[in-house]
């Protein structure tokens, strides 16, 4: 099995991960996390020692398949229930700040 151990984590990578995860980390937090995660990753990277190609992956602890629901409408939330937790609303819709995206 080829060595697939990724290179050690650096702070630029942590900053990138934080942006993927939408967390506005401060520079101090990034620095601290880089150290902490480095230690943790070093410790957990040993999973690859025994994860040989002949071993299948298990994603569910109890194997089941074909769990379906009949196509029958059920109870819905009222509009008020749906919006009850909204930090901000406009009429019956959720309100968010301007979106940076698609058509720039």
């Amino acid at each position: 099995m080829p060595d697939t151990t990724p290179p050690p984590l650096d702070s630029a990578q942590v900053a990138h991960l934080a942006s993927l995860a939408r967390i506005a980390l401060t520079a101090d937090e990034i620095e601290k996390l880089t150290g902490e995660l480095g230690v943790i990753i070093e410790s957990i990277a040993k999973v690859s020692e025994v994860a040989t190609p002949d071993v299948p992956a298990t994603s569910h602890p109890i194997p089941l398949s074909n769990v379906f629901r009949p196509d029958v409408p059920g109870a819905t939330l009222t509009v008020e229930q749906a919006l009850s937790g909204a930090p901000e609303r406009d009429g019956d819709r959720f309100k968010v700040s301007a979106i940076l995206g698609e058509e720039q």
Partner: peptide, 16 residues
Amino acid sequence: GYYDAYYGSAQKVRTL
């Protein structure tokens, strides 16, 4: 790029 080494391997450990 890291999925196989980490998450994928962890799911295999689960089998073991």
